[in-house]
Design a protein around this nucleic acid. Sequence first.
DNA 1: CTTTATTGCGTTATTTTGACACAATGTAAA
DNA 2: TTTACATTGTGTCAAAATAACGCAATAAAG
Lengths: 256, 256
Amino acid sequence: MKADKKLSEHFLKGHEKYLRHISIDCVVFGFHENELKVLLLKAKYAGKWALPGGFILTEEHMDEAAGRILKERTGLDKIFLQQFYVFSDPDRSTKKINQGFLKNLGIKLDKSWMFDRFISVGYTALVDFTKVIPEPDIFSEKCEWFNIHEIPEMILDHENILVKAWGYLRLQLNFQPVGYNLLTTKFTMPELQKLYETILERNLDRRNFQRKIIDTGILKRLEETKKGGSHKAPYYYKFDLRNYKKALRAGMGFEL
Amino acid sequence: MKADKKLSEHFLKGHEKYLRHISIDCVVFGFHENELKVLLLKAKYAGKWALPGGFILTEEHMDEAAGRILKERTGLDKIFLQQFYVFSDPDRSTKKINQGFLKNLGIKLDKSWMFDRFISVGYTALVDFTKVIPEPDIFSEKCEWFNIHEIPEMILDHENILVKAWGYLRLQLNFQPVGYNLLTTKFTMPELQKLYETILERNLDRRNFQRKIIDTGILKRLEETKKGGSHKAPYYYKFDLRNYKKALRAGMGFEL
DNA sequence: CTTTATTGCGTTATTTTGACACAATGTAAA
DNA sequence: TTTACATTGTGTCAAAATAACGCAATAAAG
């Protein structure tokens, strides 16, 4: 099989291409139908799910590497990425698990660089759910979105990474263009509020939320309204990127 | 010379002992005489100053490595450490600089692991200035404290790392036991206020600061006062660690 | 014993936040 | 066509948090 040959080469020659001991794991957040979602890959033959990850080319900036890795998985360019933590437990990737994975692949490689210890840098990625075309890679049989509350069994310490990323997202809500990156360009106030409520995991007063977010001046109301519901049609809004960036520098307060 | 032999061995055999491509750089903050200080090393023969840094043993947790590195430099155990950013520019450590450094040492080593590209994980360390005994290592001729506003010329991207660490410290002021770790066990209210003012780089109203910090309940006032100034003697305080940790979880607001 | 610098404690005005009321409006049912 | 319903847009008011400032108390120096 062609895919297997590519895999073999990866295990045999990867160390010439990539920095050893260092990996990247991305937690890709999306927002759809009022739910926070995470993009996961199902590892071939392993039967468990994994965060999209990869390695750093010998002369590549790590942030670029993260972008490159994600482009292959989502089809998107210029994704909003942020490193948030380094996972360095010496036992986080055990040889046992990786060897089992290889055996199932039918490849006999006892001394691949892949069995070395890896320190992994965690990145959060915020993407527009509607624009992503999920793509599995040669290591994976599937690539799918999962509701943040319905995460399947994951390999290694990936669940831990995911939980930590979510906490980071919550902390960053006041300082980063979370809304700008997770929503489509056009959205309604209830949609934006739901996003905040989902990330903060608590309900916000509709009227106070609106006042607060309007006062920051980061939004521009359009003339258009979103019709379809059997009730008053909400206005569409879009971000005023200029003001947004200015407001973010100051931090806009939604308390935890 | 014995030191040179140790150095040679480091350059020749280090890769057997440490993970390649990964280093740690620590920004050690202290507070003394109302000034924020940083602990720096003067690199031998290089003539420039450097952050205390090091490498990760093949089976060591990265956080432990950071602690181990700092223990050698400060004589302190159980230092409050936090990773804050990963510096991964492929050009951040150029071969030219390192080779010059080696040449000056009188050691001819063209293919040392030390010339590989390094990705460095930045840590902030908060220490009690009065308890630190600065110790240079075999790479350094000096180890000294510097005022944060009087930083000398530094090697590589270390000044950049330092600046980023300071920004991180500011952000963490409301969420981390910054005061607890930077001050001696006994301190006065004006001392604590100066610490906050120095980190935030702005003046705070003395009376509002006092009220706010007292209201959090994180302090315990002692009967003792600090005499010596030609004015009313301020009370000593110490942290109520129980309440401090509780308050930190909620975050206590000093805005930027 | 007076002066000086600074502390401890307090007051008031302003701003921000939280809780809630009510009219307006797009669709579906009558 | 009219009515019912769900949800939106806007506004009010009390409570809480913050900012700005006053003044008496006191340790040391002259």
